[in-house]
Amino acid sequence: MRKKLQSTTSKLWALAAIALLLIVWQAACSSGLISKFMLPSPVDVGKAFVGDFGLLMDNLRVTLAEAFLGLAIGVGLGFGMAALMDRFDWLYQALYPLLVLTQTIPTVAIAPLLVLWFGYEMTPKVILIVIVTFFPITVGLLNGFRSADKDTMNLLRSMGADRLQIFRYVKLPGSLSYFFSGLRISVSYAVVGAVISEWLGGFNGLGVYMTKVKKAFSFDKMFAVIFLISAISLLLMWLVEVLQKRCMPWEEKK
């Protein structure tokens, strides 16, 4: 009971801080301290959001489709990689540095290349999202697999368990929390990755919408879409948390 109360009050503080920020922002704009062309007021942003709502949703659908497809492939790839690298140590030795290397390539730099190679449709976007999302999953799962308890694995071996059974009963369930921390990162990467890849070439999506309103200097619409992207990322991260609680009921009862 007390715990619940505490978490609500801590949330209250956060909400109060956000509200204060919005009020100061609105006051600065209405008083003419900051010109409307430089920074739209929160009310203007809200109006832009409502006015363009249909258009925003159409573009959001495209962006989310890319993000989900890329994320699904990224998670699948990450899982497969982690499982193989855990099974074959030489593969781990060979691939791990390469994996780290892929993460040092700036997304903004390869996105135009991907567009040149794969066109303006969905393919280059999905590929980019796969590149940014598989890494947290692979690293998270690998850590999980490698931290499996030696005594437990020996016990199962003494009961005649083969490699696959040890993987299924010990390594996999023991890595779930690692997997979900990776997934939480990957989900936000997926949305941001989709938007970035749309900036650099495409027909629809929030990134395309963003470049259009930027060229028209509609800063209010620009902010509206930024907030929408943030909100979507938060929502997805929250969904991951719900999923985690569903998949790990034993943590609930602690």
Binding site: D149, D151, T152, L155, R157, S158, M159, G160, Y169, V170, P173, G174, L176, M248, W250
Partner: peptide, 17 residues
């Protein structure tokens, strides 16, 4: 392996089962 099993000081029950 798989003929006699053993038990240790640590119970080694799987926390997620």
């Amino acid at each position: 392996p798989g003929r006699v099993s053993y038990m240790l000081q640590r119970d080694l029950l799987l926390p997620y089962r």
